[in-house]
């Protein structure tokens, strides 16, 4: 069966809340019912039919065509199925996602995958700041699932990451993995200054040297079985990034300013 296709008619004048457009929420709904779902973020009502052309299909697979950076909360709280966005998305794409697969062919705004619990998000373009990070009031950031960014990622990716894996094929901004509780971040390219800032536990792998905080301690070159397993796992989504994990890596323990049970692997 063909996917359910929503095509943006024109760039909306206000930001849109697309969190109601999830496979499990649209299952069993008719085209007319879907067209009546509200997506406004202001006091003025705005429904799907006002901004999208709806082509009915299997609600388990939702395709949104004509994405732009004004579409917020795409795949927010998604539990199963698939959402594909042709184009960019705004902030908090895939926030609190628990399962299924979200694909963004363009760029994602800040807080993508924020508080994510499971499932898989692929961002083919670049990701904004605080990928997987917590919003004010959250105790932890991402706590499960996999995020793969084909382009670059912004600052503080994996902030307060608790569990799950973030893979960045490009470069990462400053403070990657800041305040990490646990979990795994693999960056194929370089990272901005102070990666792993105040990380407690968890693993960060960087494809090139970085300016580390002096509270990271060199443990020497290591060839660990755990990295071989991680390489095999990462290779499922990114063969290019898995090559970093198969190189000889130098292990740094930190951040000794806090708990110090985290680790950072640097190539070269």
């Amino acid at each position: 069966m063909k996917p359910l296709v929503l095509t943006l008619k024109e760039r909306p004048a206000e930001r849109l809340d697309l969190s109601p457009l999830l496979p499990h929420l649209l299952a069993g709904k008719s085209a007319a019912e879907i067209a009546r779902i509200g997506v406004q973020t202001t006091r003025k009502p705005l429904v799907v039919g006002d901004v999208f052309r709806v082509r009915m299909g299997d609600a388990g697979r939702i395709h949104i065509e004509g994405g732009c950076d004004g579409l917020d909360w795409v795949g927010h709280g998604m539990t199963a199925g698939e959402i594909v966005i042709e184009g960019d998305v705004g902030s908090q794409a895939g926030r609190l996602m628990a399962g299924g697969r979200l694909t963004i062919t363009g760029n994602a705004g800040p807080w993508a995958a924020s508080g994510m619990r499971g499932g898989e998000i692929e961002i083919r373009g670049a990701a904004g700041d605080r990928l997987g990070g917590p919003l004010p009031g959250d105790m932890a950031g991402m706590r499960g699932g996999v995020v793969i960014v084909r382009g670059d990622a912004g600052e503080r990716i994996g902030d307060r990451l608790r569990r799950g894996t973030i893979v960045v094929e490009g470069r990462a901004g400053a403070w990657a993995g800041s305040r990490m509780i646990a979990g795994t971040i693999v960056v194929r390219g370089s990272a901005g200054p102070l990666p792993g800032y105040l990380m407690r536990r968890g693993t960060i792998v960087l494809g090139s040297a970085a300016t580390l905080s002096p509270t990271f301690i060199d443990c020497g070159k290591q060839d660990l079985v755990a990295l071989r397993l991680l390489a095999t796992f990462v290779a499922r989504t990114s063969t290019r990034t898995s090559k970093v994990l198969r190189r000889s890596l130098r292990r740094f323990a930190g951040d000794m300013a806090v708990l110090g049970k985290g680790e950072m692997f640097l190539a070269g």
Binding site: V146, R163, T165, A182, T184, R201, T203, Q222, D223, L224, V225, A226, L229, L230, T232, F233, R236, K261, E263
Partner: peptide, 24 residues
Amino acid sequence: GWQISKRFGGKHYWRVPVLDGEFL
């Protein structure tokens, strides 16, 4: 206390520091 828990790909592993590196 230095053991490390790792979960990925639906599996859960323990990494225990030992004299030649790690026991996984």
